[in-house]
Design a protein around this nucleic acid. Structure first.
Length: 274
DNA sequence: ATGGTGGGCGCCCCA
């Protein structure tokens, strides 16, 4: 007996302002687990009761006032595995849970879900001139040490806004973005090294190989985001290699960029048979 | 063409 597990990740850019969009996602796609980034909401003000009413009885959050913030909404019970602080800062950029999947093929291990919001890194891709970029690189170094060599061997998924578009076909113009933070060689090479050394599967690219373009983010600053289509794949789903045969679908909800008062990121939804 | 828009918060930070 297998069950379908639907998992979504979305940088929502204010969970309070866009609660109706989260509800729309729930109504249309019914994810079992929703990982949100940039909730911009202290835990005490999180709209938990609205979400609990919709079946998300298990909520893990790591919020702060004004900036960052991550949360995991789940219809499946879990145990929290912690909120990690990176770079000695109190930034709310990670929350982890272990889903209880009793009665499935993952009953023994559970499924670890790590929800991450990697620093954007500012405008100037120079760690000396721009401390935000230095912070991003330091965050990646810590991420590499934490995920560790071969750590993808467990039953785990890493999702979130990783703020790097690693492949040439993850951006609208590889050449034009080589000096743009999110697609510089130091970022893209480090990103792929972390993923490969940890033996993580790039689930999105497993479903849609290069050279097909994949984007999850379109800037607010374009007059017509869809016509210009200057997107980037900043949001990711990584998985332990052993989970590879369990994934049955991956969808980037491009239409969500056209919803009323949208986030600049759209949800990525994957399904697993576990 | 070196802008543009959109959050939270409070007179400016961040994306």
């Amino acid at each position: 007996m297998t069950r379908t597990l639907t998992l979504a990740t979305w940088n929502i850019n204010s969970v309070r302002l866009r609660l109706p969009l989260v509800e729309h996602l729930i109504a249309g796609w019914a994810p079992d687990v929703i990982c949100l980034q940039e909730t911009k909401c202290p835990d005490a003000n999180f709209p938990s009761s609205s979400l609990t009413k919709l079946g998300y009885e298990h909520i893990a959050m790591n919020g702060q006032k004004g900036y960052h913030g991550v949360a995991i909404l789940s219809r499946i019970p879990f145990s929290e595995t912690g909120a990690r602080n990176f770079c000695g800062k109190q930034d709310s950029r990670h929350i982890g849970v272990k889903l209880d999947l009793a009665g499935t093929s993952l009953a023994e291990t559970g499924l670890f879900v790590h929800n991450l919001y990697v620093p954007a890194g500012g405008d100037e891709p120079d760690p000396v001139a721009n401390e935000k970029f230095a912070h991003k690189l330091a965050f990646l170094a810590e991420l590499e040490a934490w995920l560790g060599l071969g750590s993808g061997a467990d039953a785990a998924v890493i999702v979130g806004d990783l703020n790097i578009a690693p492949l040439p076909d993850d951006v609208w113009s590889h050449k034009k973005l080589l000096d743009v933070v999110s697609h510089t060689p130091i970022e893209t090479e480090t990103f792929e090294k972390i993923r490969r050394d940890g033996a993580w599967l790039d689930v999105m690219r497993d479903f849609v190989p290069v050279p097909e373009k994949l984007y999850t983010w379109w800037s607010y600053r374009a007059a017509d985001w869809s016509a210009a289509d200057k997107g980037r794949r900043l949001d990711h789903v990584w998985a332990s290699p052993g989970l590879k045969p369990k994934f049955t679908s991956m969808e980037i909800l491009r239409e969500a960029r056209g919803w009323d008062r949208p986030s600049d990121h759209v949800p990525v939804i994957v399904k697993l048979e576990v």
